[in-house]
């Protein structure tokens, strides 16, 4: 693809139309905070590999809220995010995102069988691995996690076993 920095800048400005001050179009600032914290516990970041946070899964979800394909689950996810914050307030904290990681996980365990959790977890996973054109998987962070090179084409040998095919056949013979 043609690399023209100013063109990309113009394009990204267009995409930002209609977004609020925090850069989200569909999610409220509170929902975005809760979703980002939730995503970071679904696929956590660590020293070796990025997580859903670096992948920007929350930005995918912000856009997914406007896609007809995900329309059915939007109310469920909104209600569930509000519930996460309510549970945090019951513990005396400002919101879910303000809790320690351990307390976030404890709350998530309480709700992990709910339709909200299943839908939100699905969105985080899709947002981490879907093409970055959808807003998540920034710089291929999701693909880095699984080891997916994401090149347009490849050349044989593809893996260790086909690279060692002859040795493999001999060792068994």
């Amino acid at each position: 693809m043609l690399e023209v920095p100013w063109l990309a800048a113009v394009a990204s400005c267009r995409r930002d139309d209609g977004k609020n001050a925090d850069g989200f179009a569909a999610l409220t600032p509170a929902e975005a905070r809760a979703m980002q914290a939730f995503a970071a516990q679904i696929i956590p970041s660590d020293k070796a590999l990025p997580g859903a946070d670096e992948a920007g899964a929350v930005h995918f979800i912000d856009r997914a809220f406007g896609k007809p394909f995900f329309a059915d689950i939007v109310p469920v996810v909104r209600a569930g995010l509000a519930d996460l914050d309510a549970r945090a307030r019951a513990l005396g904290e400002r919101d879910f995102a303000s809790l320690s990681a351990g307390r976030q996980v404890a709350i998530m365990r309480q709700v992990e069988r709910t339709p909200f959790f299943l839908a939100a977890r699905m969105l985080v996973v899709v947002g981490t691995f879907a093409d970055s054109a959808y807003g998540g998987n920034k710089r291929g962070a999701g693909w880095t996690i699984v080891g997916f090179e994401h090149e347009p084409t490849y050349a044989s040998p593809f893996g260790w076993y086909d690279a060692h095919e002859e040795a493999d056949a001999k060792s068994d013979a």
Binding site: I42, D46, V146, F148
Partner: peptide
């Protein structure tokens, strides 16, 4: 499987569906 399909539905049942072990 491409990455989304893999991450949503392929791992063994005893692997958690979220958190550090999932990752």
């Amino acid at each position: 499987y491409q990455p989304i399909g893999f991450a949503l539905g392929v791992l063994p049942d005893d692997v958690p569906t979220w958190g550090p072990e999932y990752k």
